[in-house]
Design a protein around this nucleic acid. Sequence first.
RNA 1: GGCCCCUUGGUCAAGUGGUUAAGACACCGCCCUUUCACGGCGGUAUCAGGGGUUCGAGUCCCCUAGGGGUCACCA
Length: 485
Amino acid sequence: MRETRTRFAPSPTGYMHIGNLRTALYTYLIAKHDGGKFILRIEDTDQKRYVEDAVDVIYNTLNKVGLKHDEGPDVGGDYGPYVQSERRNIYREYAEKLVELDGAYYCFCSRERLDDLRQQAEGDRITFQYDGYCKSLSKEEVQEKLHAGEPHTIRQRIPKTGKTTFEDAVYGTITVENSELDEGVLLKTDGLPTYNFANVVDDNLMGITHVIRGSEYLSSAPKYNLIYGAFGWNIPTYVHLPLIMKEGGRKLSKREGDASFEDFYEKGYLPEAIINYIALLGWSPGTEQEFFTLDELVEQFDIKGLSKSPAVFDVNKLRWMNGEYIRKMDLEDFHESALPYYKKYISSADVDLSLLSKLLHTRVDALEDIGDHVDFIEALPQYDIDLFIHKRMKTTHGNALASLKKAYEVLADLEDWGDEAVHKVLFDTIKEMGIKNGQMLWPIRTALSGKPSSPGGGTDLLVLLGRKESLKRIKTGIKKLGIIK
RNA sequence: GGCCCCUUGGUCAAGUGGUUAAGACACCGCCCUUUCACGGCGGUAUCAGGGGUUCGAGUCCCCUAGGGGUCACCA
């Protein structure tokens, strides 16, 4: 039995969105589950769409998520080159061979003629298909034009009658009428192949056993089969993947600014969480397990678990899962990850960042959330005194003021500002005053944060902000409340 | 519009002729509580519709409807 070889073949046209990444993931998993090889091939046959740094984005992304390729432009391999623009001679050679095999023919039609044809078809409200004009050219005529250096393409020759059938591992048997198939361009005027041709030639030459790609290729797959057939090549196992849709119900696209891996990464989503989440978008292990490491996915992935219907990308669930990953981190690791965000939002305030991390650890789903949680630290926000009123805490303007005054009094004298000492003096005072915990702590929390919610209660914030800042803010609260008295 | 594919709750989904139709996110409620979050417990909510086949259908067949994909010298 042949070794399983799969390939991820992106075109370097910009960022990698979630759909591409998932295709890469499944492609990797299928190879690795079988102990096979995962190959990276760059499909840059369209110079017009080429984006300078896009190849690096691909390397970086795969690297970050841990999808290590066995062969590729940067790591080499026995089937190179792995960049299609470096293989142009190969395609020409095979395209000409296909002409000889009667699977293709030269076409000298101008763009103008094709545009006219297309317009006419549109006017007649029928699907455009090339009319086969150049098929009637004799061998001599073709030779003559070639010698004269006329610009030309090579088109696939497709029988007008009959049907073509192919097997897909996910979608089963699919059959189409040959008459539905357009005789598309295989080799462009610039000498480079179109995707339709390049993928077939390369997949064959590179010994690819499983062709994994989005289901948008489902309807053109029969054409590829015809090419394999004309060459007499082995047809690979096709694995077409259901598309990932955005909430409105359209497929994810970079154009419309949809979810790219980079975006999420920059917002503080963990690569492992992203991988875990997208692994489950269109695939189910059939068990109730929902948290997977990459290795576990490799172990458990099975084509049988792939779904046929499109899946909607739910940011909400990604957020939750990312939060779960964050909560599972060691506190020290979380602290390390959070540090850059602290730097961004807290520059002058002198606070214990380790303590802050402890408070934030269960409150953050994506690292970018940190910003909203710490915005009160550097400067007390403006707030309305009605914030002191909390029904369940049983607080009013009046008792909040009393609590704050008393708190100020006892705290001002406190030597030790440690967590335990602060806690003790406050709770002793609460006991002494005979009030509910919340009646003391809610006003403090509110005065210190100026926000309806904060990453910690009264004592937490006191310790976090330190004696000087805390007392200052309590005083501010007293002043605010004093006015209405 | 032609062709291809798809259709279990708002979302991800299990299910392969006989189940009280799992589980997760979200949502709601309760508990915990020093706000929020975390955590714990519970709840609302799904087989697109119509015909068959069958003792029996979410599961098989047909039709309808809806959705998606594709119709480039882009991939």
